[in-house]
Each structure stands twice: as structure tokens, then as C-alpha cells.
């Protein structure tokens, strides 16, 4: 039962550490997502279709939010020697083009034995409407 973790790495994050970021779902992000992943479902590309289904306009792909999470993990944490081990996300509200999102994350626990950090996050629209929540387990490599 051997751990494969680097015994010399140091976890610099602590329980209770908080991070606030702001993201905007721009036309570039939206077009880029479609260009890369080719998801052209009418819910995401046709306002008429989306409105017919009860939405305000064409709905942005939920996994655009996962791209923002990737940016947070890769670029905004105090250390770079990190890898996402598990990630969960629940979507509560749709997002639309040009939505401004507040992303709030908090370190919920640190597991020194296996050098893993558990982070919970929430995306909010208009600073209060909960769009998505989730949990990420990050390994320190």
C-alpha cells in the first residue's frame, strides 16, 4: 500500500482559504467552445429553440464553466504543482451570452497524508443567483 506522492512537496493552502474570481461568458468563449468541441445542439445555438423550451435565449454550454474552473486551478492557486483528481458540478440555473459570473471557492479540507486539497465552489450570477456548485479534489504533485 504505497503512496505515489512526492514526500517533499509542501501544501501551502489551508482550510478556510477563499478565492473570488469574476468571469464573463463572452462571444469569443462561446464561439471557441463550439469550435473546439462541436456541440451545436439547438439549445446552445438557436434562440428561437431555447425560448420555445422556456429559456430566455440560447443557453450557454454548462461545460464552459468547467473551463473557468480549469483556469482557476491552473492559474489562480498559490502553487502550480497541482493536478485535478476529481471534480463534481451541479447546475442550478442556465447561463446566457455575456453573463457576468462570480466564482467563489473555499478550501474545505487538506489531507496531508496524501497531499490532497478539497475545494468547494459556487458560480453566481448577478452576485446572488446560484448557477452551479461543486467540489474539486486537487492533488499536490
Amino acid at each position: 500500500m504505497r503512496s505515489h506522492q512526492d514526500q517533499n512537496s509542501i501544501i501551502v493552502m489551508q482550510k478556510g482559504d477563499k478565492f473570488d474570481l469574476r468571469f464573463k461568458i463572452t462571444e469569443e468563449t462561446y464561439r471557441g467552445f463550439i469550435s473546439v468541441f462541436n456541440d451545436k445542439n439547438p439549445l446552445h445555438t438557436s434562440s428561437a429553440f431555447a425560448i420555445e423550451k422556456g429559456f430566455q435565449s440560447k443557453v450557454m454550454h454548462g461545460n464552459i464553466l468547467n473551463g473557468f474552473i480549469s483556469y482557476f486551478i491552473g492559474e489562480c492557486l498559490p502553487i502550480k504543482n497541482v493536478v485535478i483528481q476529481t471534480q463534481e458540478i451541479k447546475f442550478f440555473k442556465p447561463t446566457y451570452l455575456n453573463d457576468d459570473l462570480l466564482f467563489q471557492a473555499e478550501v474545505m479540507d487538506v489531507f496531508d497524508s496524501v497531499k490532497m486539497v478539497e475545494i468547494k465552489f459556487v458560480f453566481k450570477k448577478d452576485n446572488e443567483v446560484k448557477v452551479a456548485t461543486g467540489k474539486i479534489n486537487i492533488g499536490i504533485i
Binding site: 503512496s3 505515489h4 506522492q5 483528481q85 478539497e118 479534489n137
Partner: peptide, 21 residues
Amino acid sequence: HIQLVVAIEKHFKIRFTAAEI
């Protein structure tokens, strides 16, 4: 392995050290 250790630590409300693992 990491997920197992984390789940076990949470379940039993204990903490191991890296050396113990």
C-alpha cells in the same frame, strides 16, 4: 489510492501522516 485514503480518513474522522500511509 488517494481517494481511498481520503474517504477512510473522513469516514473514521481520523488523520494519517504520509509516513504512516
